[in-house]
Each structure stands twice: as C-alpha cells, then as structure tokens.
Design a protein around this nucleic acid. Structure first.
Lengths: 320, 320
DNA sequence: ACGATTTACGACAATCGTAACGATC
DNA sequence: GATCGTTACGATTGTCGTAAATCGT
C-alpha cells in the first residue's frame, strides 16, 4: 500500500470517477493512476470502484469505507507537511482565503493589510466564489479558511465560527423620493424596483424571508453577485439597492444616498470556517485574530476540538 | 514522504527512542530506519528527534505534533486493510482479545465457544495481562478488544463500555468457623487471614476501600493474580478467600465452601474497551453482542462516535 | 570496549511516462 | 469518432540490506 495510491483514490472520487481528470489534477499520467488503483485492489482483494466495462462509474461499499480513511490519510500527510513548514520557516508560507466578493472587498482589506505587513513572507491568495463554492473549496483543501455569510454551517467536516454581525442599508440615486419617507418602512421599500444580491449571497435569503413575512412581493428587477455591481446599477437609476452597510462608502459613493435599514431586517452573521482535523499554521491564527479579535488561538482550538470532546459512557442496562 | 517513514517514526517512539529496537519490531534493518527518518527530516526541513551526538533521546516539538498525525495515518492504513479483509473474506480473519485471567477463565468461555462455532474461519487469540497491560495492548493495536474490570476508563483513545456487574463471595475450606457467623459481616471476615486478588486486579482496590471505610485492617496474607491460584491456597488452609462470584464452581470446588458477600461490597463493573477510530470487523460486533447482549452494533457504533459528535457553535461576543 | 547510529555501496524492486491497444458512449 | 481505461515496455528512481566507519557511554 502506498500514499500515492490513496491520493489517486481520493482524486478519482473527487473528479467524479474520471481517472484521466484525476491524473491531470495530480500532474501525473493516467495509466499510472489506473495501475496503482489496480495494484491496491489486488493487494486487499477488494474492488474499490464499480466499472462498467472499462469505465469507472462509482464506488463499491468497501470502496466508500476505504475512501473515508484514505481521505483522512491524505489530509494528515498535508498536516505533517504544514507542521514541517511551521517549524522550519514559521513566518513564511501561503495563506489561501476562500470568500465572497463582499467580504473580500469590504470586510477583509483592513485585516489583510495589517497581516501582510506583519508577515511579508506569507503569500496571500484570495479565492472568490459564491458561498457554496467557498465551502467546497475549503472542504476540498483548496483553501485554508473560508469567510462568508451563508452556507458554511451545514457542511460536514467544517467548523463555522461567528465573526461579526451586520445589517443592510437602502441606497438610492440622489434625490430619490424614498428619501422623504421617514421612518423607512418595508412597504415603502417594496414600492420601488429593487436591485440586490443574487440568491445564496450575503443574506439574500433573509431579505426574501423578511418581505414574505410581511406579505410583500418586492419587485427585484436585478440581482447581482457583488455590491459594486449593485451600486453601479442603482447609480444608473434602475432601482433602489439593498446592500450590506459596510458596502456603502460615503466618500466614494457620492452619487448615491443611503438610508439605514437595520430596523427592517434581522442582522446577518458572517462566519469564518475551518476544516476539521487540519493543522493550522501559526500565522493563520494571527490572521483570524486580526479579522475577528474575539477568536483568539484558544477559542479557535476549542471550537475545532469541541466536536471531538464529550466522551459519554453508556449507562448499564437494567438487568444484571 | 512515505508510509514506511511514518511507520518508522511510530515504532521508534514506541520503542522509547531506540532505532534498533524499532527496526527489529518491524522486521527490517536498522540503517534503513535511520535513513528513512533522515530523509523525511530532510524533506520537511525539521528535525523530528532530539539527538545527543548520534543517540536518539527524545522528540522535538515538531516531532511530537507530527507523531500524532503519523500515528493516525498508520492506524488508518490498518483500518483500510481491515475493510479489505471484511469485504473479501467476511467471516475469516483474526480476533485478538486482551483480558485478565478471571475474565478469560470465567466470563468469556461461553461467548467464545458460541463464537468459534459460528465463525470457524476466525482465529481467536487471547492475550492475558493485568488491567494496565490489557489497556496498553489495546492502545498499541496489539488487540482488537480489551475486557477487564479496571483501568480501561482512564486511557485516552479508548472507549469503555460497561458489560455486566458482579460481586464477590467469600470462600473457605470446608468446616471453617466463619461459616457459622450469620449474617456475614466485614468484621468477621477481617478476623481471618485473607487470600485475594493482587493490586490493580478484579476490583481489589474496591475491596481495600471497603475495609478502610469501616476502619478495618484486614490481614491479607497472600494476593494472587488469578482466582484459581487463590482457590488453591484457600484449599490449603492458608486463609479465607475473597473472589468474584463467577469464579466459584460448586461442582469443581468441592473442597471449598462459599458465602455470599454481595451485601458487604459494592458491585464492580466489568468493561469492554475498544480503540477509537478503528474499523471493526463484522464478527467483532457479533462477538461483543454474544458477550454482552445489550451492546449491539448500533450501540457500539454510537459509543465510538459519541466522542466525535456534539458540534457546538460559539456564541457571538457581545460587542458587534 | 561495547552498543548504537550514521555513512557507503550494491542489488533489487517499484514507479513513472510514452506508446499502443481495447471498449464505451 | 472521440473519450476513457487497460496493457506493454523501457528508463529512472527509490528502497533495502550488508559491511564499514563513527560517536557516545
């Protein structure tokens, strides 16, 4: 048995049972992948993959069980590498943050700036996507940490930590009639065409729910992935915008006016997620503390361990 | 990086930082072990072991962290092997039970007999030792399951499941004066020389505690590891015996008389322990259910997982 | 001086990639 | 016919064990 063989298994599964794609993803030849998998199957006398003729189309039950172990092994090898880097070159390395546009653009810059000054040897990479993609990147090991407002809680193998709460503002072109209605009500907002976030982004589901709870059917004329696009279309007069408060910049956004809407919507919470069972580089703790000061090293460790704690002894059965 | 390298690391640690012993335990040459470890250290640019000159005397902090991961990897490789065996030859294999003499002699035979009839292809091995050794055998992966009355709860990485409760009897040579004292009291027992279990065996600590709680200092003239030895010396008239009830056999032990002592001592519980994170062969579940019928497969799985369950989300800090 | 570790070296085995073949959609 | 997987083969690399050298107790 081999590490390579286990890596190949994981890659083939992750590439939807396509051995060629798996080979590409590991920068090796496809025959090598096939052969190693065959060798392993031969060694343990069990078929791991279901083949239809020569095509791999799925896993056997044994394969599924073995896959879970193989995954953990591959992850642990990665962990060992990270420990090595941590001790050999503590403040050099790579930090990959998977996040959404809004976080990358508005909530992260400050922490990232401080971090880069303190760790000039760390290469920072931002990988953007929608919250689901962000969670998947983290789960697949393509990122060290994920930051997003939705979808991070439900993923198995990930631990989500609350970072901060935020609420929304309504933005309008200058001189918009909505600016007169004081105080702002949901009904007033729903009377105008609305531009806001795409489904599954930045608490869009909460916006929908809020309107629905008041039996309102807002006219959402345009939905976009990021706050900047929304602002641009609001500037063009296509409608009023509902965006995260942090996305409004009074200096930059001179052509927009802002009305606080925190009394209309429940606050949303932005989470930071980590993969369970992974070794965290020292500078990652630092970064997390910079971004969310209440998440110090102990708190983070505890949260990651809390899933492993709480040993429960079974009670004795009533009979002798 | 290599599986072999990780195995070597684990072996060296387990052999108290003796590379030669590690090599022997893995049936390979000692230079090979040294070389592979050096190669790994070179690859990750970190010393794993602390050397005094050429002698390995301990681990570096990095080494300790890596060791924990290496251990898990080695365990998972073993798990993969077991899954393979389970699916390729479900009712063939090996079952190693680490247990104490009393369990092996008096509580296990019935379950083992039934088990062997049902699984003629499984090689059963009983490994005996004192409760601490039993726990260590299990933790080291030298046994699949451990059964003992003490010391199984405190071990990290092991999960202990209660099997059954039992109490003690006093045994005497025929015609012993103690047989007249009805009902039996602790004071009466303490008046005679006593033969019972060795320290750390079969609830000996509970016996000591019970006497101590009554401010009695029993005269324990002989302590032995197993019930049979105790019975032999009681037959010789060296004293009265305190043994587990199950160890008294009215047919075999014709030269002994028995007095129930369950009103004098609190019951003891015999536990069955498993290593966390190990794949359990199907027949092991069967065996456990034969031995302790309330421990069915689901119950066991749940107990093994319960340490991993209970995800807890941290509360938000009070300030936004 | 002995036990233990590292270094050196040679034989062997395993792995990898290219090329050709077979099957499937 | 294009994609995907297996087979075949040669070059390279890595691994393992013996023998010798080195270090520390």
């Amino acid at each position: 048995m081999n590490l390579q063989q286990l890596r190949f298994i994981c890659a083939v599964v992750r590439q939807n049972f396509n051995a060629s794609a798996a080979a590409d993803s590991l920068y090796t030849s496809q025959p090598g992948v096939s052969k190693q998998i065959q060798l392993l199957e031969e060694e343990i006398h069990v078929a791991l993959f279901v083949r239809k003729g020569k095509r791999i189309i799925g896993m056997t039950p044994a394969g599924e069980q073995i896959f879970t172990f193989a995954q953990r092994v591959v992850g642990d090898i990665e962990n060992i590498r990270k420990v090595g880097q941590e001790f050999s070159q503590g403040d050099r390395g790579e930090l990959v943050i998977a996040t959404t546009h809004t976080q990358a653009r508005y909530s992260l810059p400050k922490a990232i700036k401080t971090f880069m000054e303190r760790y000039p040897g760390v290469q920072l990479r931002l990988r953007q996507g929608n919250p689901t993609q962000v969670a998947e990147m983290l789960a697949a090991g393509e990122a060290d940490v994920a930051i997003a407002t939705e979808s991070l809680n439900s993923y198995a193998g990930l631990v989500a930590l609350p970072c901060y709460q935020w609420n929304r503002v309504v933005i309008t072109p200058t001189g918009h009639p909505l600016l007169q209605s004081q105080p702002l009500t949901l009904e007033a907002v729903a009377a105008y065409p609305i531009v806001t976030y795409d489904q599954a982004f930045a608490g869009r589901s909460l916006i929908d729910r809020t309107f629905a709870n008041h039996s309102l059917s807002p006219n959402i004329v345009l939905s976009a992935i990021d706050s900047d696009v929304i602002k641009a279309y609001v500037e063009l007069g296509l409608g009023i915008g509902i965006v995260a408060q942090m996305a409004y910049d009074p200096i930059r956004d001179k052509k927009l006016e802002v009305i606080d809407a925190s009394h209309l919507f429940d606050p949303s919470t932005t989470y930071l997620a980590l993969r369970q069972g992974t070794y965290l580089r020292g500078y990652l703790y630092t970064f997390i503390a910079l971004y969310a000061p209440h998440l110090d090293r102990n708190t983070v460790d505890q949260a990651l361990d809390s899933t492993m704690a709480s040993r429960a002894l079974l009670p004795l059965p009533s009979g002798s």
